[in-house]
Design a protein around this nucleic acid. Sequence first.
DNA 1: GACTAAATTTACAGATTGTAGTATAATTTA
DNA 2: TAAATTATACTACAATCTGTAAATTTAGTC
Lengths: 194, 194
Amino acid sequence: MDNRTIRTDPRVIRTRQLLKDAFIELLQEMDIEKISVNRIAERATINRVTFYLHYKDIPDMMEKIADDMIEDIHRSLNMTSESQPMTEEDDWTMLVNLLEHFAENAKFYKVVLASRRTPIFTERLLNLLTELITLRIERMGGDAALTTNGVQKDIAIWYGSSALIGTIVAWLRKDMPYTPVFLAKQFTLMRSLS
Amino acid sequence: MDNRTIRTDPRVIRTRQLLKDAFIELLQEMDIEKISVNRIAERATINRVTFYLHYKDIPDMMEKIADDMIEDIHRSLNMTSESQPMTEEDDWTMLVNLLEHFAENAKFYKVVLASRRTPIFTERLLNLLTELITLRIERMGGDAALTTNGVQKDIAIWYGSSALIGTIVAWLRKDMPYTPVFLAKQFTLMRSLS
DNA sequence: GACTAAATTTACAGATTGTAGTATAATTTA
DNA sequence: TAAATTATACTACAATCTGTAAATTTAGTC
């Protein structure tokens, strides 16, 4: 079975859809560690062996579903023929399109992005940074309690903490090409607005 | 065994350290799905049954290790007695302390935060957003190619893409308390600097 | 040295995994 | 429409993993 090219056979489409739906359902109900091929096949009313005709294992299935997700998002962006030449207008449109795409498929995205799929460590660290940034923002905006420069407080917190942890992770992945002090300076430069 | 309070017995400390080291080692070598209690115990030169004397299962062990991690980080911050009263100076110091703590324990953090523990979906989306933001930044700074306002380009990209995806995830978790358009406006307000 | 608690050893039932071979059903093509 | 192709179902199997139990040995504490 040529996995990515030939898949017009309605049986293939149906089977994969059933498996995907079953997997998303199960992700809502339990942690991923508890999801077995057995359970997925059972929920999908598909024979377990058939699963292996389509996917190597569960991680492989997740990769394929993620591939489809990226395709969907690309479509939702309404990219003009070439992706290079873009105006500020297009920039705004793309961002809105992206967010609306998430809103329309919120059920799916909430499960695969926002449920407890976030590994425990990143999650804990994110919580910690969120606390710290909350303190910092509340300290700054003693008067402008709720909004700062027209930015909603909670959104600024989400933004700042995610940016922080994400940058740290990227920095670690690249084997720390900058010193801690340099990176810290960069942080202060970038968040000088919020 | 009172898990968090009484653990002065050197045997307990030794066993948990061996289990933790073995787990971190295995995480470097293979995906988490392939890590079994069997393998951990084997690598730790500890009887498999002993694992269950300390942890319910692997996710439980990860939680406990994450607890310890948060404790460590808190210590590294050098919080002054009270955490509330802080100056801008303290803010800077904390940030530097945090980054230096990561640098000192990079081996551990790189494995638990920066290896492929990031779930496939978030990872894929992060890659996509990184591409988009890279385009945007390169478009803006046609002249100021490498640095914008003194901010390193790659760092600005890490920062912006992480902030974007993190905010979206938080927004989804909260069941989208803002409309897509409103959220998009907030994004433009916050990144108006970068 | 006696007492206490942790770790080991052995054993077991139940579940999961991945693969194989054959049979049946659905789809496509000539 | 009939034949050829391909997907799915069914049954079965060995290997591994899980979680728990009981009895024993080892190490630490008082």
